[in-house]
């Protein structure tokens, strides 16, 4: 049994004064696939979003308790949410393509990290799209708008971070 990558203890998730979800304790193992299953609106997304601090962007949302990532308290006073998000990726339920070409969509994450080298970006884009089994489908349309392609969601796969998925496997 490997140690947990993410631990949640006595966490309560609030929107304004409404307590939305309570998680008494939860461990998410390293190098495993963990799925949250539940009816619509039960709080799966809230918990997932709390793990990479996306809830910071929602006015009035707050978390009490402890969420640890490799031993770091994610809500500790010294934690930089941007760094958290760079290491804990998130793939959204709906594909969220940017209004850019497929190539630029996929390269968005690496570029944020400061990769400017064209050849290196090309390699990353190609391998990411191959990993997502989309390469053959889109390789001739890389410069076209990504809006209509599923490839949007592959923005997430080129982020060099372990991913949280809120994609429904259906």
């Amino acid at each position: 049994m490997q140690s947990a990558a993410i631990e949640i203890r006595d966490a309560e998730f609030f929107y304004g004064s409404t307590r939305a979800v309570v998680v008494p304790g939860l461990e998410i193992a390293k190098n495993r696939i963990t799925a949250f299953i539940g009816p619509s609106g039960c709080g799966k997304s809230t918990v997932l979003r709390a793990i990479n601090r996306m809830n910071d962007l929602v006015p009035g949302a707050r978390v009490t308790g402890e969420i640890r990532f490799n031993g770091h308290d994610l809500y500790g006073p010294d934690i930089d949410p941007v760094e958290v998000r760079r290491r804990i990726g998130m793939v959204f339920q709906k594909p969220n393509p940017f209004p850019k070409s497929i190539y630029d969509n996929v390269a968005y994450g690496p570029r944020l990290l400061g990769i400017r080298d064209k050849a290196r970006l090309d390699t990353i884009v190609e391998s990411s799209l191959r990993d997502a089994a989309l390469w053959d489908e889109v390789k001739n349309d890389l410069k076209k708008s990504g809006t209509r392609f599923r490839a949007g969601s592959s923005s997430g796969c080129a982020s060099p971070a372990p991913s949280l998925s809120s994609q429904r496997s259906s």
Binding site: K30, F69, H72, E83, G156
Partner: peptide, 25 residues
């Protein structure tokens, strides 16, 4: 999607992002 330790193809210098090393958050 797979949750995994990620290694950028052709970008070994980015290995600092490996989770096991204890990231600096």
């Amino acid at each position: 999607q797979r949750s995994r330790s990620y290694e950028l193809p052709g970008a070994p210098s980015l290995a600092v992002f490996e989770v096991e090393d204890g990231p600096d958050l």
